[in-house]
Each structure stands twice: as structure tokens, then as C-alpha cells.
Write a protein that binds this DNA or RNA. Structure first.
Length: 247
DNA sequence: AAGGATGTTGCCTG
DNA sequence: TCAGGCAACATCCT
């Protein structure tokens, strides 16, 4: 559920309902935020930024983050109590086990859309600049940095590093410029592959590294370790993923 | 079938 | 003072 492409799928499903402009007729759920303020407010837009799903009203927006376990149902309900349920004239949206919060004022002041790998306004040059500002940072950490690659999660991280044959413990300052540009490029490319495979229910079948035990290029065992400041699972091949490091 | 994970926040400790 | 550790969230897969 939680990586950027999955949020794009949610946004597309909700846009198909064509309820933009409709008012919220009823709110419920076990969230502690002041959900009643959405009552009778017309929705101006449904948007996404990285792993955030955004419902924009006139003076504020609702931010939904699904974390690890969050889920949603459109015109359906689960057994469990929703964190937040929004009823419109022609549709009902239910969110479960997610983080919800309000963002006040103009959403464009709050989000840098060019940092979202799924965005039309994604700016690879700016991402590259950010990487040059982090000479000691590790490849496995920067890909998960939402200020640089909003939407990239642990699956995309592992698959991108494998695809470009870069060892997760490589540092920014040691990676050749061409390869760093490829890192930026593939963070977006793989995210769109992820989107298509997820829509076709074939995402897992396309994993080459994530959760895998054997390198499909070398036929030798993958390394599995929790690496970097982020300390997230990394699956990588010590043979074909090159480690660029000063040490 | 227990344990960990596609993630982030916030509190506690040293 | 602040970085690091870890619980919390609550579901699904292995």
C-alpha cells in the first residue's frame, strides 16, 4: 500500500468517482482530529505528494498517510472501524489505520511538488543537487529521503539499486556523476514501472531483488542486511552491485 | 504460527 | 542538547 505509486492509484480511483466539487455530507471515524470542520465543505481537488494522499478544501487540506498498515475502501466498508469516513452525495470513502491531519492554508506553500517522483513537475536536476549536498550519505539512505525522492519506499529502493548495479553502502561523493544521474532517473522510471505492475497485480512477480535470496544476474546468494541511518532491509548482490566508497 | 514489514512520529534516555 | 532507540499504530504475509 504505502509507496508513492500506490497513492497515485488511489488518487486515480477516486478521480474516477467524479466527486470533485461535491460537499462532504457526513463524517465519522475514530480519528481525534476535528473532522466536523469538513462537513458541507466542497472538495476542490484530490492530490498526492509522495506517500501522502491529499483532499483539498477551500481553506485547508486533509493529509492521509497510510504508514505500514493503512488501507481504504471506496463505496465499501471493512469490519473494523474506519479512522475516517467521508460520505458524498454519490460516493463514500473509508480510510483505515492511517495517519490523518489537516494542513492549513495554501497547499502549494506547503509542498515542493518537484520533489515527488510521480509528479509531472518532478525535477531531476534539483534532486541531483540535493545529493551533491550530502557527500557522506549512503545510497540506501538517500533513496528513502522524502525531501529528495518523495514517494520512494523500501521496495523501490532495493529494486533501483539492483537495476543500476549500485551497492547500497556507496557514498554520494564517491559515485561517478553519470551513475548518480542514473540513480535519479531510475528512481522515477522504476516508480512508473511499479505503478503499471501494481495495476496489473504483477508487482511481486517483477521483483528482482526485494525479498529475493539469489541474484538473478549472478546466481549467487544475495546479501540481506539492515543498512544505513534508515536501518531498513536491503537485498543486494556483492558481486554485481558496485560499491563506491572512500574507505 | 510467531515475527516482521511497502513507514513515520514522538517520547524517553543517556 | 540532541542523537539514537524504540514503542506505537493494527494488518498481512511468510
Amino acid at each position: 500500500m504505502p509507496e508513492g505509486p500506490s497513492i497515485v492509484i488511489l488518487k486515480e480511483l477516486i478521480e474516477e468517482l467524479q466527486i470533485t466539487g461535491q460537499q462532504v455530507l457526513e463524517v465519522s471515524g475514530n480519528t481525534k482530529i476535528d473532522k466536523e470542520r469538513m462537513l458541507n465543505q466542497p472538495v476542490r481537488a484530490f492530490r498526492s505528494w509522495g506517500k501522502h494522499f491529499l483532499i483539498c478544501f477551500d481553506d485547508f487540506s486533509l493529509r492521509i498517510h497510510f504508514l505500514l498498515f493503512g488501507s481504504y475502501r471506496i463505496n465499501e466498508r471493512k469490519e473494523s472501524i474506519p479512522r475516517l469516513s467521508l460520505r458524498f452525495q454519490t460516493a463514500e470513502i473509508n480510510f483505515y489505520a492511517c495517519s490523518v491531519q489537516f494542513i492549513e492554508g495554501d497547499i502549494n506553500q506547503f509542498y515542493d511538488w518537484t520533489a515527488d517522483v510521480m509528479s509531472e513537475t518532478w525535477d531531476p536536476a534539483r534532486a541531483l543537487e540535493k545529493l551533491y549536498c550530502l557527500p557522506d550519505a549512503l545510497a540506501c539512505d538517500v533513496l528513502l529521503d522524502q525531501n529528495i525522492f518523495a514517494g520512494v519506499g523500501n521496495i523501490i529502493k532495493n529494486e533501483v539499486l539492483f537495476r543500476i548495479r549500485l551497492h547500497p553502502l556507496s557514498t554520494m561523493q564517491e559515485i561517478p556523476r553519470e551513475l548518480l544521474m542514473l540513480l535519479v532517473e531510475e528512481a522515477r522510471n522504476y516508480s512508473f514501472d511499479f505503478l503499471e505492475w501494481k495495476k496489473a497485480y504483477t508487482l511481486k512477480a517483477h521483483w528482482l531483488a526485494h525479498t529475493k535470496k539469489i541474484c538473478p544476474r549472478c546466481d549467487i546468494p544475495f546479501e540481506k542486511a539492515h543498512l544505513g541511518k534508515t536501518n531498513r532491509r536491503s537485498f543486494y548482490c556483492n558481486n554485481c552491485q558496485i560499491r563506491y566508497t572512500g574507505a
